[in-house]
């Protein structure tokens, strides 16, 4: 069986202390929250820290003046089941409820989901397998096996909640050893399969703030092979405001088609001032699909996945506009 390496495990009492520990230990240490992403990765030796620093309990899911404030260790299951969140921001709650499988959602946290490692099927394999095929840039090697001529890593951002948060204009609260700062979720990511987070490695995500203005319509549609467990092959998050039949605001962001959650402002902008018709929805979806660049490093063919982006964006727009329609 694959076993975890031997590790030192620290349980600081506060986020600031956790950040201080990590700042002190540097790359030898990593944060762990629910561990649902990190533990399998450690077993396959995707990371080789000698210390794990537990993210302390940062619970609480409350609504305050027009936004939701959710603690980073609130589980995906808790977020998905929260009645207020489901009513106000169904797109976000559903994205949380579509991550992996029920047992993993009971352990996996929102903070962990925002920070989830990028994926690639040349990378999420055991040490022995990677040794056989040849190590790649992301761990132990010096070339990218998917795009050998490229100097960078194209591993795929696979968070379902990140695009759902982005279309809301959400932000995260980060705690460092010397205090807190707030950062838009859109600014949390970098277009790089390896250094995919723009925050300081020692900063703890302590909370996520989701604006929930009245009348905002949201939807998330996820494409995956098996509805009970798989990572997204593509995901589309949409947030819409309408004035009667006319779109007054629209944001579209995609999961799993790039190394970061990908917002496509053109698609949203296109719809503003228009009615939602088959034609406008389809045209917006086509715009949304343009920058999606799936590669041959996930399930099924990238040719097919690229085609499907349009389909799921259309479905997500419809789902946001008519919340009761599935």
């Amino acid at each position: 069986m694959l076993r975890l390496p031997r590790l030192r495990y620290l349980r600081p009492a506060t986020a600031a202390e956790a950040a201080a520990r990590l700042a002190e230990l540097g790359t030898r240490a990593m944060f762990v929250a629910g561990g649902t992403d990190l533990f399998p990765n450690l077993k396959r030796r995707q990371f080789e820290p000698d210390t794990l620093v537990q993210v302390p309990p940062l619970k609480g899911l409350r609504r305050a003046d027009g936004h939701f404030e959710i603690g980073a260790t609130v589980t995906l299951a808790e977020a998905a089941a929260h009645a207020g969140l489901r009513a106000a921001l169904p797109g976000f709650a559903e994205a949380a409820g579509l991550v992996s499988s029920p047992p993993l959602r009971n352990a996996g946290t929102l903070g962990g989901n925002l920070c989830v490692d990028t994926r690639c099927n040349y990378y999420n394999m055991t040490y022995e397998w990677r040794k056989s095929i040849g190590f790649c840039l992301k761990k132990d090697g010096d070339i990218c096996l998917v795009a050998p001529s490229s100097p960078r890593c194209w591993a795929v951002s696979s968070s379902d909640t990140a695009p759902a948060a982005m279309v809301l204009g959400a932000s995260v609260v980060l705690a460092g050893p010397d205090g807190e700062r707030e950062l838009p979720v859109a600014a949390l990511y970098r277009d790089d399969g390896i250094e995919y987070l723009a925050k300081q490695p020692h900063e703890v995500v302590t909370a996520i703030r989701l604006p929930a203005p009245k009348g905002l319509l949201t939807g998330y549609v996820k494409l995956r092979r098996r509805g009970s467990i798989d990572f997204p092959l593509a995901g589309a998050a949409v947030a819409l405001t309408l004035d009667g039949p006319i779109v007054t605001g629209c944001r579209v962001a995609l999961a799993a088609v790039a190394s970061h959650p990908l917002e496509v402002p053109e698609a949203g902008a296109f719809l503003v001032g228009k009615r939602l018709t088959d034609e406008t929805i389809s045209a917006a979806a086509e715009l949304a699909a343009k920058p999606a660049r799936p590669l041959d490093n996930a399930d099924l063919t990238h040719f097919w996945r690229k085609k499907m982006v349009r389909v799921i964006v259309e479905r997500a727009i419809r789902r946001a506009a008519t919340p009761s329609v599935t």
């Binding site: 099927n121 999420n124 394999m125 055991t126 397998w129 056989s132 095929i133 096996l145 092979r225 098996r226 509805g227 009970s228 467990i229 798989d230 399930d299």
Partner: peptide, 20 residues
Amino acid sequence: RQGLHKWPSMLEYKSPTFLE
């Protein structure tokens, strides 16, 4: 792929679950 089993893992080798 490249002489190797492409996905010798229960997550990547897709087999149906109860849901399917």
